[in-house]
Design a protein around this nucleic acid. Structure first.
Lengths: 214, 214
DNA sequence: ACCTGAACACCGTTCAAGT
DNA sequence: ACCTGAACACCGTTCAAGT
C-alpha cells in the first residue's frame, strides 16, 4: 500500500499526536517509531512532513505558545501596561502548567517558532505604546519569558525527592526538613512565582516612573 | 585485563570528563560509549560508579552549582540583603555562562543535587537573618533561581536564526528586523537580564519596606 | 507526492565471565 | 570490587522501491 490517494499524515496530525504523547508519557516517550505507530504509519513517513524529530517537538512547543492569551496587549484594551503584563504572565504560566513536559523545549527560546515570536511582538508593541523606550520594551518581553519559563522548568512535577533520609540536615543548616519534601515544594513554587511576579512588576513600575519622558 | 589492581575510574574522573565533553560538544555528544572511550574504558564500566547516565549529568550540573559564589551570604559579610542577592545573581549567571550546555539539566531544579541545595540553604539563611519571614525567604531563593536559569536557558548560544528571510515582517508588526538577528539577540539577553535583576531587587525592596516588623 | 521495508550507525542498560 | 565483551531492545535518519 505504498502511497494512498489521500495522504495519511499532515503536519497538524503529527503535531497533535506528538503533543498528546508528550503530555501523557513525557518527552522521552516520543520516538519517531513510537509516534508513527500512534499515527498508524511507519517511522520514516514522518520525514515527508518534518525534516527532523526536533522540528516536530518545536512545533508542539509552538502550539502551546499559541494558547497564551495576548488580548491584554491589544490596542483597544483598557488595561494599563503593568496590569497587562501581570495578566499575561498568569495566562502564560497556565499554558505551561497544562503542558509541563514540553517546557524544556519551549524554554530554549522563541527561536524560529512563529507563535513565540508573535508573543514577543505583542508585548513589545504594547510596552512601546505605553511609553517604554524600544530597547526597554524588548528587555521586558525577554525577562518575563525568562522568569515564567524558568519557574515552569524548575518546578512542575519536579523538585525534591520525597525521601527525608536523602538529606542530612547538617549539610543544610538553615533549611528545615519541611523544605525538602515534594509536597511542600508545590506551595513554594506557587508562592515564589507570585512573589517574583509582583516584585518584577513593582520594580518595573519604579523604573517606569523614573523614565525621562520628554 | 578484567579488573586492574588500581581502579581505572572514579566518580570524579567521570564527572570531569563528562563536563568537558558537554562543554566542548554539547549534551547530545554525551553517550555512555563515547564518554567511556574518552576515559579509556568500555561503556558498561560507568555503571560501576553511577546508576544511570542521567545521574552523571546531574553530577556535572551540580559541579557547576558548586562554583557559584556564596560568600555574600556569610554571617560576617557586610553586604545588605539586596546587595548580596545582586552579587549572587551575577556570580550564578557567570557560572552558567561558563557552561551553557549543561543549563537544561541544571534548570530542572535543585532536585537531589547537594550543591544546589547548599545554594538554597545559603540564600534562605541570609534572607531570614535580614528580617524576611521564612516563607518569603524561601520564595526569594526560588524566584531568583527561576529568573537566572530561565535567562541562561532562553538565551546563550540560542535565539533567532541568522537568516532574515526566515521571518515575514508582516507577521510581527512591531518587531523591527533588527530584533530578529542573532547578533542583536546577545545584547538583548544582557539588557533583559540587567533590567530584570534590577526590577526584582527593587520590587523586593518595596515588599521589604512594607513588612510588618513587630 | 507520500508511504514502505531495509539498512546504517548508533543508543542505554543488563549480565555473565573474568581477575 | 571493577572491568570486559556480548547481547537486548531500542534509537534518528537515509534511501531505493513502490504507487
Amino acid at each position: 500500500m505504498a502511497r494512498p490517494r489521500k495522504p495519511l499524515l499532515s503536519r497538524e496530525r503529527i503535531v497533535a499526536a506528538a503533543g498528546a504523547l508528550v503530555d501523557s508519557e513525557g518527552l522521552d516517550a516520543v520516538s519517531t517509531r513510537r509516534l508513527a505507530a500512534e499515527l498508524g504509519v511507519s517511522g520514516p513517513s514522518l520525514y515527508n512532513h518534518f525534516r527532523t524529530k526536533d522540528e516536530i517537538l518545536e512545533a508542539v512547543a509552538d502550539a502551546v505558545s499559541a494558547q497564551v492569551d495576548l488580548s491584554m496587549f491589544a490596542e483597544h484594551d483598557s488595561r494599563d501596561w503593568a496590569t497587562a503584563l501581570h495578566d499575561w504572565a498568569l495566562s502564560y504560566r497556565a499554558a505551561l502548567r497544562a503542558h509541563p513536559q514540553i517546557v524544556p523545549v519551549l524554554a530554549r527560546g522563541p527561536g524560529r517558532r512563529p507563535a513565540g515570536l508573535r508573543v514577543a511582538d505583542a508585548v513589545f508593541g504594547a510596552m512601546v505604546r505605553a511609553g517604554w523606550p524600544p530597547a526597554q520594551a524588548t528587555h521586558i518581553g525577554a525577562l518575563m519569558r525568562y522568569f515564567i519559563t524558568g519557574s515552569a522548568l524548575g518546578s512542575f512535577a519536579r523538585g525534591f525527592v520525597d525521601d527525608e533520609t536523602a538529606y542530612d540536615p547538617a549539610d543544610y543548616p538553615h533549611l528545615g526538613r519541611a523544605h525538602l519534601l515534594a509536597g511542600h515544594q508545590e506551595a513554594v513554587d506557587e508562592g515564589a512565582f507570585e512573589t517574583g511576579l509582583r516584585a518584577i512588576i513593582e520594580g518595573l513600575g519604579v523604573q517606569y516612573a523614573a523614565l525621562d519622558r520628554s
